[in-house]
Amino acid sequence: MFEIAVIGAGVAGLTCARRLQQAGKRVVLLDKSRGLGGRLATRRLAGTHADHGVCYLQPKGDLFREWIEELVDIGILRVWSEGIHRLSADGILQPPTKFAPCYAAPMGATSIAKYLGKDLEIIGDKLITAIDPTDNGNGWRLSSSDPQWSLTAEQVVVATPPAQALAIVGETILQRRGYANDTDCFQQMSSVNFTRSIVAISVYPATQQNVAAAIPWQGIQCIDHPILAWIGLDSSKQIEPTQPVLVVQSSATFAEEHFDAPDLAVIGQKLLDVVAPLAPGLNAPALVQVHRWGYAFARNPLPDRFLTAQTPAPLYFCGDCCGGNRVESAYLSGVALANRILNLT
């Protein structure tokens, strides 16, 4: 039996688990994927890499700024850009009007997740399908798609998108065990809606590195654009890039229209065709890969940093949709919940 099981190895789950473990709790972190980080995602391809989830980090509050400074001090993060260009809905490129440090990881965003997961007990590639109260009601038994596997914990933290969290605990809590008096917590989770995103990652020949170095922008935020949300010259995050890499994230509208398309290569090319006029050579990549995010950003984030279920054994929920919809909100959610479990707040 573990003291605490954390389901979901995104920023919120990793942050919460790390703080609990540092406080002396016996914690296990579980995730359905082999890797860590959630949308702190880096794709390795063709001798280079690209961040196809989180674009960059820019702190707004003191607590998140302190954490970023910690990551800068140990060499995981560095200042990538002092300002982000903007692309209007009608395709007009505008230079930055606001300047503040934007941070990125030269070795890829997953290096942040690996740092958070250092020294944690982690079980990856494990899809948790249900949690049930133990016979004495003082803990939880976690089950997975493997019928021969189970795990027991006194407390459970679910740090996944609400739809996935409800798929794990909804039947157990609301139906099989009759905890119907806790509908408020689960109604809040079921009310959260997410946008989708389609991401095209394009790698260009090394011979075009000089051309890429002359591009006047590193990142472009697309404002109310019907097709695009973000354009990043991702190779510029690297200390000594060997070849240009571009990451293009679609708008929510475009993703809804094309999310289930049978040929993702065609969809990726549609995104690149729109970007091509912004710099020479962008319409002729050597390699293109496409990724889909089903839970990109919460449209209607919850007001609280975490939720507590009214169950006999402690059960909590946290994530980037708690108090916001970005990496900073995920980090603060994990911190707040860890403090609550440790009775620090």
Rank of each mutant, 00 (worst) to 15 (best):
205 P>W: 12
207 T>W: 10
207 T>F: 07
207 T>D: 05
209 Q>H: 10
212 A>D: 09
213 A>D: 14
213 A>K: 15
214 A>C: 04
216 P>D: 08
217 W>F: 12
218 Q>A: 06
220 I>L: 02
221 Q>F: 15
223 I>H: 13
225 H>I: 07
227 I>W: 00
228 L>S: 07
228 L>N: 06
232 G>A: 12
232 G>M: 01
233 L>W: 03
236 S>L: 04
236 S>A: 07
239 I>Y: 09
240 E>K: 11
240 E>D: 14
243 Q>N: 05
243 Q>T: 08
244 P>G: 06
245 V>W: 01
245 V>T: 09
247 V>A: 03
247 V>D: 00
249 Q>T: 07
252 A>L: 07
253 T>G: 02
255 A>C: 05
256 E>N: 14
257 E>T: 15
258 H>L: 04
258 H>Q: 14
259 F>I: 11
260 D>Q: 10
260 D>N: 14
261 A>V: 03
261 A>C: 07
264 L>V: 11
266 V>F: 11
267 I>K: 03
267 I>D: 00
269 Q>E: 14
272 L>Y: 11
273 D>K: 15
274 V>F: 13
274 V>A: 07
274 V>I: 13
277 P>R: 13
278 L>F: 06
279 A>R: 07
279 A>K: 04
280 P>V: 08
280 P>Y: 12
281 G>I: 06
282 L>A: 03
283 N>E: 14
